[in-house]
Design a binder for these strands. Structure first.
Length: 271
DNA sequence: CATGAGCGG
């Protein structure tokens, strides 16, 4: 539902937002923005809904992330109200502190409008924010998050020392120029400031290209700075085979410190 | 220097 008036005063931290959104947006302040570049989404999974949920006939809600703390429902209404088909906006907040969790949902009259907004806004700059919109189809709370991975496992590298102006798109294209299996790139954004944290991730479909890039791209310029490449800690363990059963579990790293006594107990239990 | 935001009602 639309709930104006929940706007929080921005926290007292160095950077104040240039404006608060306590008033409904003016009549026609914003024009539909044309993308300056192809959508700078993480992954190519932006344009498609994850999967048609069994029950719903059409998904008309978008998930929006990378919100700064002061970006409330009124702000979202200001951003998307000009479509004339915005039916609800919501910012998810912490129940105790009421502080924004940095994401929300925007729902439209029709799926077509939602799709148009996704295609048109994604990767373009947010008003007053400085960072790009990060939009995707909303999923249902049941949340089978893992089935989102389209085609096989990801091979991801960490990229540090990024200049402040490096975007998802630039990072992606810097690698795509040399490696055609690049699936996407993501620059990590600081929620407090909306600015780059100076590091990010690049995903490859091909493991060989990932490994080549680890050495070949070391020190290569992206924007104005040489990149530092490192291995990415695996956030997606589903891509690799997981240990199953007792034998593998006992040899896995988490159980290496198991004591002799515990092994004895285990043996008794299993006997 | 540094290892991602992560789906409500």
């Amino acid at each position: 539902m639309m709930q104006p008036g929940h706007g929080m005063a921005p926290p007292t931290m160095g950077q104040q937002p240039p404006q608060q959104y306590q008033q409904p947006p003016p009549q026609q302040p914003y024009v539909m923005m044309q993308p300056q570049q192809p959508p700078a989404m993480w992954a190519a999974q932006s344009a498609q809904p994850p999967q048609q949920p069994a029950s719903a006939d059409e998904v008309r809600t978008l998930w929006i992330g990378d919100l700064q703390y002061w970006m409330d429902e009124n702000y979202l209404y200001t951003c998307f109200g000009n479509t004339g088909e915005l039916t609800s906006v919501k910012v998810i907040r912490n129940k105790q502190t009421s502080q924004s969790e940095g994401y929300g949902f925007i729902e439209f009259n029709t799926r077509a409008t939602a799709e148009r907004v996704l295609q048109t806004y994604n990767g373009t700059i947010m008003p007053n924010g400085g960072q790009n919109y990060r939009l995707n189809w909303a999923t249902f709370s049941a949340g089978e998050r893992s089935s989102r991975q389209d085609d096989g496992p990801d091979h991801t590298i960490f990229v540090g020392d990024l200049a402040a102006d490096v975007t998802d798109y630039l990072l992606q294209e810097t690698f795509r120029a040399r490696y055609n299996s690049v699936k996407g790139a993501k620059v990590v954004i600081d929620r407090l400031t909306g600015r780059s944290k100076g590091y990010g991730f690049v995903r490859f479909a091909d493991e060989g290209e990932q490994m080549r890039a680890m050495t070949e791209m070391q020190g290569v310029l992206c924007s104005t700075r040489p990149m530092r490449i490192g291995p990415a800690t695996n956030k997606n363990p589903a891509a690799t085979t997981q240990p199953k059963g007792c034998q593998e579990a006992l040899s896995s790293r988490s159980l290496e410190l198991i004591s002799a006594e515990m092994v004895t107990i285990l043996v008794h239990v299993l006997a």
